[in-house]
Write a protein that binds this DNA or RNA. Structure first.
Lengths: 205, 205
DNA sequence: GTCTATATCTGGATAGAC
DNA sequence: GTCTATCCAGATATAGAC
């Protein structure tokens, strides 16, 4: 910081992205100025334009990189398994992945409307691909009779929302480890998609 | 629109709030200018300041009014019933209430960080009161043996997130009515909090 | 690659006439 | 209560020296 001259292209680029990610997550894209980002990096504002053509491209690059990571890591997780095991893997992967990068997750949900229409379409397509993976698991399990999920589309929306919600309250160093949280959520998911005999009827106390 | 003079305090006030709600929901608080709001209402910018001391107060007023409505309507819904019936009432109320005012719900989640710390504390306290109502239902049901929810705090977060997520995909005039959506979500919630015998063991196909 | 300086624009908010 | 005009701060982005 407070450096006044010199060339550091190798490290400045990542620092610009890191600063933008942090500031966008904290204050919101529209509320963050290029001056703020420059100050955080420790350069003058003009220098930022060596690394991004404009502010919009910076946001898009962060979101695109995040979605690419997500799809790549989920691909690497794939095993040929029964639906129930695949669903459990999805639940645990989603929670673990999201909690490892809360800022990227946050801007991925909050800043979609600040993308240009073209950029939005790209991100949206990737998001649908990921969420489609969950729906496919539910469809397969329903077909096999492992789950009782009459509307797999709605169920996939419901489960994604529930799992993603972990990021709104989880704080590292709290009462529960990530694995414990995943255990509890998996238990709820497992029951939510299961067949039971209590439909409508009151349960025995 | 395009009107150039005259006094309309009785109607301009609500129109300012309506325009702000719509624009904040669509573009985000930070991205919307007072000039845009004025244009939407059909007045000049200076006139807005007859109805709000500043832009921040306008946002706070919208969020506060929304939370007051929410808590008031939920109170009116209360009946002395068994936990299971109270949970069902919560699920149906939450979905119905949220789908009736998507813009207010949207800014209530997206614009919290654009409140001043004092204003944020007020809204946050009201939100906690509402979410606490759900947790209380879960605690009661757990104590009565009607539910199997080891961690009522986490379960309340999970269910709230799942239910609130409806607003991200539901569109009026689509395949399902609000009541049908509520039926499907209630079915998942009911199972998620129920006791079952499949813990860990694979189910018969 | 970074700096300083600047062009150009838009923002929130206010003053005073009507 | 609304309008017009304006202040002033801050925004994105660029130009040209080093």
């Amino acid at each position: 910081m407070a450096r006044t001259q010199g060339s550091h292209s190798d490290i400045t680029g990542p620092r610009v992205r890191a600063a933008a990610l942090r500031l966008f997550a904290q204050h919101g894209y529209a509320a963050v100025s290029m001056r703020q980002i420059a100050r955080e990096v420790g350069v003058q504002v003009g220098a930022l334009y060596n690394y991004t053509p404009d502010k919009q491209a910076l946001l898009f690059s962060l979101l695109k990189g995040h979605m690419d990571d997500l799809l790549e890591e989920w691909q690497a997780e794939q095993r040929p398994e029964a639906s129930r095991a695949r669903l459990e893997a999805f639940v645990r992967f989603h929670i673990r992945f999201n909690l490892a990068r809360p800022e990227a997750i946050f801007i991925s949900y909050m800043e979609l409307r600040n993308l240009t229409p073209e950029n939005f379409a790209v991100i949206e397509a990737l998001r649908k691909r990921y969420e489609g993976a969950l729906e496919e698991i539910l469809r397969d399990g329903q077909a096999e009779g492992a789950f009782s999920v009459p509307d797999t589309r709605l169920a996939s929306y419901a489960l994604i929302a529930m799992l993603t919600g972990v990021n709104t309250w989880y704080r590292a160093g709290g009462r529960l480890s990530i694995a414990e949280v995943a255990d509890i959520y998996w238990d709820m998911v497992r029951k939510a998609v299961s067949a039971d005999d209590a439909t409508g009827a009151p349960q025995p106390a």
